[in-house]
Design a protein around this nucleic acid. Sequence first.
DNA 1: AAGAAAATATAACGACCGGTCCATTACTGT
DNA 2: ACAGTAATGGACCGGTCGTTATATTTTCTT
Lengths: 230, 230
Amino acid sequence: MATSSKATSSKAASIKAASIKAASIKESALSKGARSRARVIAAAANLLQRRGYNGTGISEILKASATPKGSLYFHFPGGKEELTIAALKESGTDFGDKLRLLITPETSPGHALQIASGALAQELVSSGFEKGCPLATVTLEAAAASESIRQTCEEQFRGWHELIEAMLVARGLPATDADEFAVTALSSLEGAMLLCRAYRSTEPLEKVGKQLRRMAEHLLASHDVNERRA
Amino acid sequence: MATSSKATSSKAASIKAASIKAASIKESALSKGARSRARVIAAAANLLQRRGYNGTGISEILKASATPKGSLYFHFPGGKEELTIAALKESGTDFGDKLRLLITPETSPGHALQIASGALAQELVSSGFEKGCPLATVTLEAAAASESIRQTCEEQFRGWHELIEAMLVARGLPATDADEFAVTALSSLEGAMLLCRAYRSTEPLEKVGKQLRRMAEHLLASHDVNERRA
DNA sequence: AAGAAAATATAACGACCGGTCCATTACTGT
DNA sequence: ACAGTAATGGACCGGTCGTTATATTTTCTT
């Protein structure tokens, strides 16, 4: 696996999406190339989440997305590494979007974290404990071998981290406390997903979700007490 | 990879370890076969921790342990899967032993957890962020594909879990609370090791270690208060 | 309608994978 | 010393890996 990342993906095709006769009623407004590109990325993201980097073969991705080999290397000249990076970015933003939906002014941070735990457990169960964190397996496998993959994983993790942190800051928690708690929350959710797959049980996620809710509530409450006192 | 685990390892060679002329001064008291068996397991454990299951080739393990292929399949008729299980068990008990050393009547649970975080961070740094949890990568890769590997990972994780839980119960914490906190502690340490590898920084482990110490102290303190009140 | 570019399709490549086989060598109990 | 087994040393297998090369078809521009 190359450590350099000079490969440039061809995304030129998608810039002029809505042309004159783009009034095709049901079909997506993307060009054919962009569509098969998206199809391959989706298949890669799914398989990477289930079987990891080394456990997912190029041919498997192509079969799952009904795409011939030649097309892959047209859309992703950088090969497996470039495709993986694109898939990780998609998985990362998808997960971030779902997380964002949970964070509303009406929902307390503790509650949001517990809901998130439940949603993660739900996805584990409905996939036969195959779909855990979309980044974790690839991170552990490839972070040491490919610097560009490692950087991508870091970016996505940091995005999630910041979402949790911002949710706490919005409640008036000092940035330092919010950051430290956010790292712990993210870590324990990641670790819990790992244990759930090892145990084939959602028990770790449930217990961690409960703990996180209690911790968040306690943290915000004691902060408020200090504020009032000052 | 076979899901069945009918393979039986040949450990017949090691039962008669100390023979008459076992007075060989420096050499280990193990038979030659047992020694190369241990060598292969150690090399496999090391490589599995660094590169995972799919990322570690049989030939790589053999080269690292200076062992020919024929020997492997003599000692481990079950092939890669059986060798992996043996390596995971060794890694798991090694880690458990280190953890046990940290747990003394003089050390508070919170302090022990923070020390453990520091030790994990130290190993990450000294291995160039290659050596994280010896089970995590293999769990995520192979738990879904091989039931026997999954079971081995579960056993080892549960062993660590029980160590943490027992440490808390020894301080008078109710079993339910101790169990829930132990899962959270183990989860957050596992997740923190993952984030450390993604970030190439020990920062997550340090913050989680700090949080765990505070949480453990708060948990034990509030329990003591309740006890006194009752 | 013609030409260029984008995209697809297939075949084949060399390297390496985990595993099998078997002849040979080292050890051990009698 | 000798028999019998434990253990080693490699050659070799079919299969799959990621990648490359090239011919063809589709799509867009003019």
